[in-house]
Design a protein around this nucleic acid. Structure first.
Length: 441
DNA sequence: AGCACA
């Protein structure tokens, strides 16, 4: 075979092509100038400017081969050379048959977004914070995070391109709301393009990747034993490995926090299997067990630092427990196993009460049964404004729609609650326990 | 003046 490809390409024996290769162009030649040059000979359907080491080459692609031939033929016999800005340009058939535009993927709308987190502390942004941010626009199927030369990046998968587009339009160029991050970390700006991916492959739930459509996906070993990689917390400290069991300590407990109150608060994020309360360091702590890590992660994100009651009372501090399955010996006012049939329980309506009620959040077009209780139903309200929504806006749903919104003071009151208040000698203002409302101090 | 690097 004659090896045409091994020959120098600047013989004038290029086979015809719809694509012409132009050289000796002036610096920064524009697409418009190329179209002007080719227009007399046919329809220019594509161009590529600023090619080559000196950016002085370009391609133009005609709709039809004959148009390209016409242009080459014309200038082959013309006394006037082809010119751009008075500079002679040289034409020949390209050795390719079409222009491939490499700026496609980032411009074609898809259901997966490529998110670059910019900022000094970008790496400290947890996948859970990203999940919260993007869940405001619809159900987030999957998230993966990774390091590239571009920095800390994430792929965020939505159901469809429309949802992804609404998130992209609202978030691109914006900062992650301050109230989602601890105070001492630098602002993080989101840069968002479309990804060419349509379905991410997530093998494990881990600190780097999540599949929110599959709660039974195994948790990565590295996320369980914590021996290999800790994820960095928002404050830059090491995080304990995620767990399905949360350890909650209650600060400034002016009002009694009973087992039932805890069960209500934590049930907003999923089924609470077991709770155990105990005294430690002069305060009250509780272990709350969920069926899966994912639910616990969401609950922790949502509740950490928030107060059960208005006024900074009963502030929750939540960490992951090393337990995975609590051993509840007896059901009483300090410990309870909600997974076993409980005809003998004193207050035996809790879980069933919460189930349906917990799903009454309006605007919940997210997948049923998944844990989005705290996503703003009207994301545009929070994101369209230049100023990030105030802290209260994120959990505001819990204020408005949380099942524990008593029409009358102190509903679901338990004997234990009464007693503890009596013992403590602290009377709530006006004798009323404020409604449960997570709020930051 | 001589073929694109996503």
């Amino acid at each position: 075979m004659a090896s045409a490809s091994s020959q120098p390409q600047f013989r004038y024996t290029q086979p015809p092509s719809k694509v012409l290769h132009l050289r000796n162009l002036p610096w920064e030649c524009t697409e418009e100038e190329l179209i002007e040059l080719g227009k007399p000979f046919g329809k220019v359907v594509n161009t590529k400017c600023n090619v080559g080491a000196n950016h002085n080459q370009a391609f133009i692609e005609f709709a039809d081969l004959n148009q390209a031939i016409a242009m080459i033929s014309y200038y082959a016999s013309s006394s006037e050379p082809a010119q751009v800005r008075g500079k002679t340009v040289y034409l020949q058939y390209s050795n390719r048959q079409e222009i491939v535009n490499n700026k496609t993927t980032a411009d074609v709308a898809g259901n997966v977004l490529l998110v670059t987190i910019e900022g000094q502390d970008a790496r400290l942004v947890s996948i859970d914070v990203l999940h919260l941010v993007f869940s405001a626009f619809g159900f987030v199927h999957k998230i993966t995070t990774f390091e590239k030369t571009a920095g800390f990046q994430a792929l965020v998968q939505f159901s469809d391109a429309e949802t992804a587009t609404s998130a992209k339009n609202a978030l691109d160029g914006r900062i992650i709301p301050r109230y989602l991050l601890s105070e001492n970390i630098a602002p993080c700006t989101l840069r968002i393009t479309y990804s060419a991916h349509t379905d991410l492959s997530v093998k494990f739930q881990s600190h780097r990747s999540r599949d929110y459509t599959n709660p039974y996906l195994p948790v990565a070993p590295s996320a369980i034993d914590g021996s290999s990689q800790f994820s960095l917390g928002l404050d830059g400290k090491k995080l304990e490995p995620e767990s399905n069991v949360l350890l909650a300590s209650i600060e400034n407990m002016q009002y009694a926090v009973t087992l039932d109150v805890l069960q209500m608060v934590f049930s907003a994020f999923g089924h609470v299997q077991k709770i155990a309360m105990f005294d430690k360091n002069g305060g009250v702590q509780a272990l709350i067990q969920y069926p899966d890590v994912r639910t616990a992660v969401v609950a922790k994100e949502a509740l950490e630092g928030h107060c059960i009651y208005d006024g900074g009372f009963c502030k929750l501090h939540i960490s992951y427990s090393r337990h995975t399955d609590l051993s509840i010996k007896v059901n009483n006012d300090r410990s309870r196993d909600y997974t076993i049939p409980n005809p003998t329980m004193v207050n035996s309506q809790p879980v069933q009460t919460m189930g349906p009620a917990a799903h009454q959040y309006n605007g919940t077009q997210y997948a049923p049964g998944l844990e989005q209780p705290m996503m703003p139903p009207q994301p545009s309200a929070g994101w369209a404004s230049a100023v990030p929504a105030p802290p209260q806006s994120m959990p505001v749903q819990m204020t408005n729609h949380h099942p524990y919104m008593p029409p009358a003071p102190m509903p679901q009151m338990t004997p234990g609650m009464m007693q503890m208040q009596g013992q403590s000698g602290v009377s709530p203002p006006a004798g009323i326990v404020p409604p449960y409302r997570p709020s930051q101090m």
